[in-house]
Simulated scan of single mutants.
Amino acid sequence: MISRTKRIARSMVVAAAATVTVTMAMPAGNAFAIDHVECRGGENFLKIWSHLDGRSSVDCYANKGRIGFGSWWVDRISTGNNDLVYYDVNGDSVRVNRWTDITFPSRPPKVRDIEIL
């Protein structure tokens, strides 16, 4: 007969092995936490100038992830230290590399979502 101490120890080892197996089998998910942040001079945030229905806006974003942009017309993008993909209302996606400042004076895109890579 197995002693009580050995049974407890064996149960703990089996539980630990099961935990490790489940942890290894689960896919590692990426935590996407894009944030709308306050625009501040000297920061390398993604910065987007846009307009819609007579209103204009300047918005800044930080951290990896994807967020809805409300189908606003984009006049200018400064990517800072972020690689960006924007998705327009026509279903196209456009990648803009970090350290890029681009303006759209005559035909601005109407952007549905933005994603920091």
Rank of each mutant, 00 (worst) to 15 (best):
K6L: 14
D35M: 12
F45K: 00
G65M: 05
G29M: 14
A28R: 12
V111M: 06
G41H: 12
M26P: 00
E38N: 11
V85R: 10
T5E: 10
P108F: 03
G91H: 06
V14S: 02
R76G: 03
W99A: 06
I8G: 00
A9P: 01
M1T: 09
R10D: 02
G54V: 10
Y61W: 14
S11Y: 11
I102F: 02
R4E: 06
G42T: 01
A31D: 13
W49V: 10
D75R: 11
N90H: 14
I67C: 06
T21Y: 10
D101F: 10
G65W: 01
N97E: 11
L46Q: 07
C60N: 07
D83Y: 15
V96W: 05
T21A: 13
M1W: 06
K64D: 12
F45Q: 02
T5V: 02
N30H: 08
I67S: 02
D83E: 15
A18I: 08
A31G: 04
R4A: 03
S78Y: 04
H51F: 15
V85A: 11
D113M: 10
I48L: 13
R95W: 03
F69P: 02
R7A: 08
H51R: 15
V58N: 02
G29K: 09
I2L: 09
V74T: 00
G65N: 03
N44A: 12
D113E: 14
S56P: 07
G41M: 05
S78E: 13
G42V: 05
D83N: 15
R98T: 01
R55I: 06
T5Y: 09
Y86W: 14
I114V: 11
A15M: 05
V94S: 08
R55M: 04
T19I: 15
L52D: 15
Y86S: 04
L52K: 15
I114C: 09
K6S: 04
L84R: 04
S11I: 05
S50L: 08
V85C: 07
L84N: 02
S93D: 07
I48S: 13
V94P: 05
V111G: 01
F69W: 14
R66P: 00
Y61L: 00
W49Q: 15
D101K: 05
R95E: 10
I34D: 08
G80E: 04
V85P: 00
K64E: 13
F104V: 02
R40D: 06
Y87P: 00
A33N: 15
S106L: 07
V96S: 04
S93T: 13
R98M: 08
L84D: 05
A16H: 00
F32P: 04
R98V: 00
H36Y: 10
A15F: 09
N63E: 12
A25N: 06
D83I: 10
I102E: 08
T103R: 11
M1P: 06
A16G: 03
G41L: 11
N30M: 10
A15G: 08
V20S: 01
I48M: 13
V58S: 05
G54Y: 07
I34T: 07
G80C: 05
A25M: 11
N30T: 14
W73C: 12
P105S: 04
D35K: 15
V94M: 06
